[in-house]
């Protein structure tokens, strides 16, 4: 079951974030581990040069820097990138306050320091089990710091211009019905129609005919376009016209991408 963090504001608005599972988090941590290792190796090279001057100082700096990098990497990156490390950026994950509030520095510090308990007895066994068993997929450090790790979905839109081929749409002659269709269709219905078009070539011919017939019948119940607009129109073309209306007629996007806003 895919779990999510659902936040309902006192203003009656609800939004949700999909919670990151143990596998995605493990992969992000593997990337972070590689980054830490690379940093340590790079510093090792620098200290090797320094050891010509003083082996003692070079050894001390090496120990301290390894300690600081291994502990501080997560703290610094998550603070600088608002809940993300290199691994989390790649895996599109983000640490968030469990109540959707502002992530505080002490929360980042605690979740990273308490990793020591999650890593027990070996290879994140405790943390992994806690993530699987927890309702909000929290490891122990997250639980204590009151944070969650969420997945940032990528809202990739299909290339509608190519899909719909810019053909004449007879429905557009009736703007009031067009507006009614846009108002009555739910996001799920719109997605369903779009996906049917995107995947049409994957369907058997008979199944395709049946699917578009069902969809057309359903959309006709939402808005009934006059016969002059639909006469002799195949069901698939009917759905193309519907999708064209639902997805293409809109003002330009508000200027900034969702991801940038979500910072």
């Amino acid at each position: 079951m895919k779990s999510e963090l659902r936040i309902r504001t006192p203003e009656g608005i609800a939004f949700s974030y999909p919670l990151a599972g143990p596998v995605a988090r493990c992969m992000a941590w593997s990337v972070d581990l590689a980054v830490i290792l690379a940093l340590v190796l790079a510093m090792g090279r620098v200290f090797a040069v320094l050891s010509i001057v003083s082996r003692d100082i070079a050894g001390a700096l090496s120990t301290i820097s390894y300690f600081i990098v291994s502990i501080g990497y997560g703290v610094v990156t998550e603070w600088a990138w608002r809940g993300q490390t290199v691994g989390k950026r790649i895996m599109r994950l983000r640490v968030m306050d469990a109540q959707g509030l502002r992530l505080q520095p002490h929360q980042i510090l605690m979740r990273n320091l308490l990793r020591a308990a999650d890593m027990l007895p070996f290879f994140y066994l405790v943390g992994g089990l806690a993530t699987v068993l927890s309702q909000r997929a929290q490891r122990l450090g997250d639980l204590a710091a009151n944070t969650v790790v969420v997945h940032i979905p990528k809202h990739a839109e299909p290339d509608l211009d190519q899909l719909l081929a810019g053909k004449f749409n007879s429905f557009r002659q009736f703007p009031h019905l067009e507006a009614r269709l846009r108002q009555r269709a739910t996001p799920e219905e719109a997605r369903l129609a779009l996906q049917a078009l995107v995947r049409r070539d994957d369907l058997e011919p008979d199944a395709r005919v049946r699917l578009f017939a069902d969809l057309a019948e359903h959309f006709k119940t939402l808005t009934n376009f006059p016969p002059e607009a639909t006469d002799a129109m195949p069901d698939e073309q009917y759905i193309r016209n519907v999708v064209d209306i639902l997805f293409r007629q809109r003002a330009s996007a508000p200027g900034r991408s969702v991801e940038k806003v979500a910072r």
Binding site: T9, I13, F15, L101, H155, A185, R191, A253
Partner: peptide, 25 residues
């Protein structure tokens, strides 16, 4: 619930979430 504007909805959700974090903190 407006079907044709998922991108706009996500934009507004993200903005509301940020404002919520500041207002209710």
């Amino acid at each position: 619930t407006f079907a044709s504007e998922p991108e706009l909805r996500h934009y507004l959700e993200a903005l509301t979430a940020r404002a919520y974090a500041e207002i209710h903190e």
